[in-house]
């Protein structure tokens, strides 16, 4: 595709309680087929989407957290997590799932997909995006 745009999917909601997080992930998975420059942002309660050890058995609804691990296979390798949102919730990078991708430009070396950035850096990423999806 000739015109590649920068797509930014902004995830602001907890993974359960509402369907926004799951249906956002469905857009990301479909959108991956369009070969755009894709980034995901996790801010506010959205950082909970990436937490380790999610267990929905008590809720009786589908646990979709494993789907985030598939993102690397879809060439979705830029997951930006806002530092301030983590800190406000008493979370650190260690509380998040280890998500990786294989870098085709570096002999398929396995690299971390999650990058913790400040709110200032996040604002700049939003500014540089062509299309902002807000979930």
């Amino acid at each position: 595709m000739s015109d590649i745009k920068k797509f930014m999917y902004v995830n602001r909601k907890a993974p359960y309680g509402t369907i926004y997080a799951w249906e956002s992930l469905e857009v990301v998975l479909i959108g991956a087929a369009f070969e755009q420059d894709v980034s995901l942002a996790f801010v506010d309660d959205g950082v909970y989407q990436l937490c380790k050890g999610q267990d929905t058995t008590g809720l009786g609804i589908k646990n979709f957290s494993a789907t985030y691990r598939a993102l690397g296979d879809y060439d979705v390798s830029k997951l930006y997590v806002e530092k301030e949102s983590l800190e406000a919730r008493g979370l650190t990078l260690d509380d998040l799932m280890p998500l990786t991708y294989e870098d085709a430009d570096d002999d398929y070396a396995e690299k971390d997909s999650i990058r913790v950035v400040s709110s200032q850096e996040m604002a700049e990423l939003f500014e540089q995006s062509d299309v902002l999806f807000n979930f």
Binding site: F7, G31, F34, L132, F133
Partner: peptide, 21 residues
């Protein structure tokens, strides 16, 4: 129709305006 229609809208339009929470 499918979600591809949303992605296409993002690609083809000058602005995608989202209404929601």
């Amino acid at each position: 129709s499918g979600l591809g229609q949303l992605i296409e809208a993002g690609i083809q339009s000058d602005r995608l305006v989202v209404f929601g929470d």
